[in-house]
Structure formats: structure tokens, C-alpha cells
Design a protein around this nucleic acid. Sequence first.
DNA 1: TATATTTGTAAGCAAATACTTACATAATGG
DNA 2: CCATTATGTAAGTATTTGCTTACAAATATA
Lengths: 114, 114
Amino acid sequence: MEKRRDIYQAIADPTRREIISLIARQSMNLNAIADNFEASRPAISQHIKVLTECGLVIIRQQGRERYCELKIDKLKEVTSWVEECNKYWNAAIDSMEDYLQQLQTKNKKHGKQQ
Amino acid sequence: MEKRRDIYQAIADPTRREIISLIARQSMNLNAIADNFEASRPAISQHIKVLTECGLVIIRQQGRERYCELKIDKLKEVTSWVEECNKYWNAAIDSMEDYLQQLQTKNKKHGKQQ
DNA sequence: TATATTTGTAAGCAAATACTTACATAATGG
DNA sequence: CCATTATGTAAGTATTTGCTTACAAATATA
């Protein structure tokens, strides 16, 4: 079995994103979270399981209650990935501009104009 | 039918994330993209379809080739969501600190110490 | 014009997902 | 100790996903 969870898959589900947004504001126990949704408690429990499995949430047991706490840093891995894509994209734009610049200069030398 | 695509679902798949990372560097036509993966060309074509359906990629037709261009701004919507969560989280931390501060002050008044 | 190239898409299928109901377990409170 | 509360988890199911092969269509090229 040994399922590999990852953050991207975790935040793909809208309900899980709502859960994340909810416990960002305040740690909550499972029933309190479930109260905010139409889905059944077990459904929410399973969502929480996914979130813990990929390290987005940790559980603090307090008596019979289990408080769900968001690990915000884990969420920032997504931002990092986006930032990396953005870096590649900017570099591509820059080199394209250089290229057009060179093209223009060369054309001027040859007396060509657009 | 009318499938609703969204970016979160789009980036959930590792192959699609690789495609995004690839065309961030440079626009590529479909076959060129497919060459970078083990999966079949139709499989990649279907991934591209998902990416266009949620606005992450646009197609520039050039003769019989179709160049896939990344719409980097769309990707930033994800960052925005993460940032919003982060804002909530920071606000929660701040108010928790205020609370502990108040508690400490009160305890000092009553002569209590830990 | 005949052929090769680039692509979309349908059909079929195995696996994963998200949900439900039903039951089990453990802590709390009288 | 018994009832309540908070939760996990199993079983079952409908839907979605990601892939394949096969075929179609449109453009380019010899």
C-alpha cells in the first residue's frame, strides 16, 4: 500500500482547501471542523487524514479531542514551485528581448527597417 | 457535462506540473513536449487540454503545429490563495501572543508566577 | 497528388477519489 | 459502571482520472 501523498494533491480538493483556510485562523477539533461542512463527519475525518499524511496538518490530542493545527510552512512549498516557474518564465522573456534587440541592431547595420 | 476545471486540480498531477515547468522556459509544440515524457502523445495531449481548459496554457497555431504557451499569471492565483491562508495564520498567531501577554500581566497583578 | 507529419479525439479500462452508512474504540462525566 | 462524546476505520459505491490503442483530420512536402 504505502500511499504517497503530496501537497498538490491535497489542495486539489475544494473541501480540503476550505479546511486549510479554516484552521489557518484557529486550531479546531475534528467535530468543530465538520460542523462547517455539509459532508458527513467521516468524510471530513478522511480529508484530515490526507492533510496529516502530507504534513499539512498535525494533530494535538487533548483528552478525547484532537486539535487540528495547520503547518503553514508546508503550504509554502507550493509557493516555491510557482516562484521557480516564474523565474524560468522571466528568464525566457529576458532572453527573448535580448534576441529581438540583437535582431534590430543587425537589421539597422544592413539598412533594413520594419 | 460541462466540466469545471480549476488550477488546483490541474497542478495536482505531477506530469502536468512538469509540463508547466517545461513551457515556462520556452513555448513548445505538442510533440516536442511529449518527447520529454514516457507517456504516449495522446496522454500528453489530454494533459494539455486540461491546462488550456483552466486557462493555464494557451495555444498558438502555426501551420500544423500548435505552440503551447504558459499563462504565468494564472499560476499566481495559487500563490494568492496561499498568501491569504498565511495572512489568517499570522493574524491568529498575533492574537494568541496578545492573549498570552494579557494573561501574564494579569498573573503578575495577582502575584502568580510560573 | 501521394505521403509524411502534427495533432485531436473516441473507446475501453484499471486505479484512485470522495462519499456514504455502520461499527469500533477510547475518554469523560454522572 | 453506564451513557455520552469524539473520533477512527471498514465496506460499498458512483464518479473521475490517467492511460492506452485506434482512427480521423488537417497541413506540409516530395
